[in-house]
């Protein structure tokens, strides 16, 4: 496979194979998110009347911090092995590297979310299968990794990279997180889907804006 799509696919396939071999990212995300859900569920023990208030926060705290953990590792392996230079040497559009990395981060995070959601439902006495919540997670994760990938590339060249990523990243991704929490609250409280629609549109709009802007400025993030 050649062309832009071929390069994106090559990047993605390489990252998936590396993760399949090392099992570093998905396992860490799962463990972190699982522990967060368990701790919060014991700490709050929300009743049916307060579930719509507490549960979205619990869910997105778990997803967000686990997601940052994964994004922190997105470029670390490339950087530590010197392979980031190998990538920078390749005569490919930087956007191809960006989309390959972003898709890999998205897959790792979304796998974690798919596995964590039933656990979250069991601990908080919610229905196991919530398709609208899955859709919210899908859309919000796109925006999350779209921004996170670029800040991960910037942070990897700094000394305190584990600290730098959340510091740089959270102020920018706040709109997606707010929309994700608000829309999750609507689903979990069983409110009308008419209330949900504007939030989903907002997340989708942020996804589109963040994807385009991040892809365009990614080349500057990679430069030394």
């Amino acid at each position: 496979m050649r062309g832009f799509g071929g390069k994106v696919f090559a990047m993605l396939a390489k990252d998936l194979l590396l993760e399949f071999r090392a099992r570093e990212i998905v396992v860490s995300l799962l463990v972190f998110a699982l522990l967060t859900i368990i701790i919060f569920s014991f700490a709050f023990e929300p009743g049916p009347d307060r579930i719509g208030i507490v549960a979205p926060g619990v869910l997105w705290v778990a997803f967000t911090f686990a997601g940052v953990l994964g994004l922190n590792r997105a470029f670390v392996q490339e950087k530590d092995s010197g392979c980031l230079q190998g990538l920078m040497l390749c005569p490919v559009d930087r956007e191809a590297i960006y989309f390959g990395k972003m898709l890999a981060s998205f897959i790792f995070m979304f796998i974690m979310e798919i596995i964590i959601m039933p656990v979250f439902s069991i601990f908080l006495n919610l229905p196991i299968f919530m398709p609208w919540l899955l859709l919210i997670a899908f859309l919000a994760t796109i925006g999350f990794v779209a921004v996170g990938t670029i800040f991960s590339a910037i942070a990897v060249n700094t000394k305190a990279r584990d600290l730098m990523l959340p510091l740089l990243f959270f102020p920018v991704v706040v709109p997606v997180l707010i929309a994700a929490v608000k829309s999750s609250a609507i689903v979990l409280a069983g409110s009308s889907l008419d209330d949900l629609w504007p939030w989903l549109q907002m997340i989708a709009a942020f996804d589109a804006i963040f994807l385009v802007i991040s892809a365009l400025i990614f080349q500057y993030a990679l430069e030394e």
């Binding site: 071929g6 390489k14 590396l18 071999r21 092995s81 392979c83 230079q85 190998g86």
Partner: peptide, 23 residues
Amino acid sequence: SHDNLLYDNLSGYENLKFYGRMY
């Protein structure tokens, strides 16, 4: 260069195939 620019968890063949695709 001093760095090998190779992925330790991939085989030599997989590394060469990846870079070959990128080029």
